[in-house]
């Protein structure tokens, strides 16, 4: 039996909204410790990793590890009916369940229940090594969203370079080019923290960075981690309960 109540149901809704443009079908991997999602996009250029710790839920019960295969677009349709202050209670049987039951409860007078059909999804889980990164940048999530959105009008590839003076986002395109420099700042309102061992410069597809910023409502700050010649990690922490992490493979110089 899997049964868990998320008091702030809107957090789960925001997670599904954040990943549904990248991931069509995915497993909710439920275990005693957490509910997790790991999936690549169809082009295998990016990877989404979600974790919601059991402590994020009340009345968490997971008798044995279970993978619940969902279609994110269909899940999103059901979550459209979630009230903004509703809790969600998830329920599924142990042995290859056909459906996931979700109860939406807000005020005392209304309880809505939905059943989402599940499917068997064969996925390859990638092992992501827990290695330190050369550069880690923490900045406001909405500021990162604005930069990525603004630069997309100039071209399709963004060079992110982290150096002594700060982090530079650069785009070169047919109509011209642009640079946005983000420097360390202690100001409460838009605090920027840059930890750098060695300068790093990598090229990324803006289209994917834009997909990642769909997670902006989940977190005040985004954490961007880079090392030479490996995928960037764009992390949206969910309070102390988990995260949505996006990994994006760089574009490689020929």
């Amino acid at each position: 039996m899997f049964e868990a109540q998320l008091v702030e149901g809107k957090t789960f809704k925001a997670i599904i909204e954040a990943i549904k443009d990248l991931v069509v079908d995915c497993n909710l991997d439920c275990s005693e410790e957490e509910v997790a999602i790991q999936s690549m996009d169809s082009a295998h250029v990016s990877l989404v990793a979600v974790r919601l710790s059991a402590s994020a839920f009340s009345n968490y019960r997971c008798d044995r590890p279970n993978s619940l295969g969902i279609n994110t677009a269909n899940m999103s349709k059901i979550l459209k009916m979630l009230g903004k202050d509703d809790s969600i209670t998830f329920k599924a049987e142990d042995e290859s369940p056909d459906s996931l039951t979700m109860l939406f409860e807000g005020g005392k007078s209304t309880i809505a229940d939905f059943e989402l059909k599940l499917m068997d999804i064969e996925t390859e889980q990638l092992g992501i090594p827990d290695t330190p990164y050369q550069c880690t940048i923490q900045m406001r999530a909405d500021e990162f969203q604005r930069i990525v959105r603004d630069l997309q009008v100039l071209g399709d590839t963004c060079t992110i370079s982290c150096g002594k003076e700060g982090v530079r986002f650069s785009v070169t395109g047919a109509i011209g080019n642009g640079n946005i420099l983000v420097r360390s700042s202690d100001e409460d309102k838009d605090k920027v923290t840059i930890n750098m061992e060695e300068p790093v410069e990598l090229n990324f597809a803006l289209r994917y960075l834009n997909f990642f910023t769909k997670a902006t409502p989940l977190a005040e700050n985004v954490v961007i981690s880079m090392s030479p010649d490996v995928p960037v990690v764009v992390e949206y922490p969910i309070e102390e309960f988990g995260h949505v992490k996006f990994y994006l493979a760089p574009k490689i110089e020929e």
């Binding site: 690549m40 082009a43 250029v45 390859e124 990638l126 597809a205 493979a249 574009k251 490689i252 020929e254």
Partner: peptide, 14 residues
């Protein structure tokens, strides 16, 4: 244009 690398070339399947 710079070619796009794929995720599976960085992380191995578990």
């Amino acid at each position: 244009r710079k070619p796009q690398a794929r995720m599976d070339s960085f992380f191995a399947v578990k």
